Simulated assay, not measured.
Amino acid sequence: MLAFSSADVLDTVLAAGLPRLTARTLTMPGLLTRQLETIRDHGVAYDREESGTGVLCAAAPILDQGTIAIGAISASGWSTRMRLDHVTSAVHTAALSLSRAVGRAA
């Protein structure tokens, strides 16, 4: 959601600080900002044990008619049981389908 938020929202998040949740949590603002650019470019975000040890996640935004995220869809699971490369395309495709449906309803 943050990757598709306004610059003001990102500034607020960065100003509040980036608390470390696990050894892999991104706590450096510059690194997070670059990661958000990659997420916008690819349309999928990954959590590789950044928010919880042993937990992986692939997420994609549900966009309104433009580029504003109004929701997201994700798949998460234990790192010992889930492979991100197996779920990424399904998550991305589902988010695109939902975005199209939202656009038609508006």
Rank of each mutant, 00 (worst) to 15 (best):
S51D: 09
T22K: 05
R81Y: 03
L31T: 14
L10D: 01
M28V: 15
L14D: 00
T53Y: 01
S99C: 07
F4W: 12
T12L: 01
P19H: 10
S76H: 14
V55L: 15
A7S: 14
S99Q: 04
Q65L: 08
S76R: 08
A69S: 11
R104E: 08
T93D: 09
L31F: 00
E49M: 15
A90W: 03
H42T: 12
D64P: 01
L84N: 02
D47Q: 09
A69M: 13
S89D: 11
S76P: 03
V55D: 02
G17A: 10
T22E: 09
G52Q: 09
G52A: 15
A60H: 00
S74G: 12
D11I: 09
A94V: 11
T67N: 02
I73H: 01
E50D: 00
L2T: 12
L21Y: 12
R100A: 13
T27Q: 03
I62E: 00
A16L: 03
L84T: 06
D64K: 07
L63S: 09
D41F: 07
R34H: 08
D11L: 11
D11F: 10
R100L: 13
E50M: 12
T25L: 00
D41C: 14
L21W: 14
G52S: 15
A101T: 15
T93P: 02
D85F: 06
L63A: 05
P61Q: 14
T27S: 08
S51H: 13
D47Y: 10
S79V: 14
V44M: 04
A69Q: 08
A45G: 13
M1F: 08
A45Q: 08
G43L: 05
M1C: 12
A105V: 11
L36R: 04
G17Y: 13
T53V: 14
L98K: 03
G103T: 11
G30K: 02
E49I: 12
A94L: 12
A69H: 08
A60F: 12
V91A: 06
E50A: 10
H92S: 08
T27L: 08
G71F: 15
T33I: 11
R48D: 14
G17C: 04
D64C: 07
R24N: 04
G77M: 04
A95R: 04
A58D: 02
S89I: 09
T22G: 02
L21N: 11
R48G: 03
T38S: 06
D47F: 12
A95C: 01
T22D: 02
S6I: 14
A105M: 10
C57P: 01
D41K: 08
S76G: 14
L36N: 05
R24E: 03
S76A: 13
L31N: 03
T93M: 04
V55F: 11
C57V: 15
M1N: 11
A3S: 07
L31Y: 02
L98H: 07
L2D: 05
C57K: 01
T27A: 11
S97H: 07
G66Q: 01
V9Q: 00
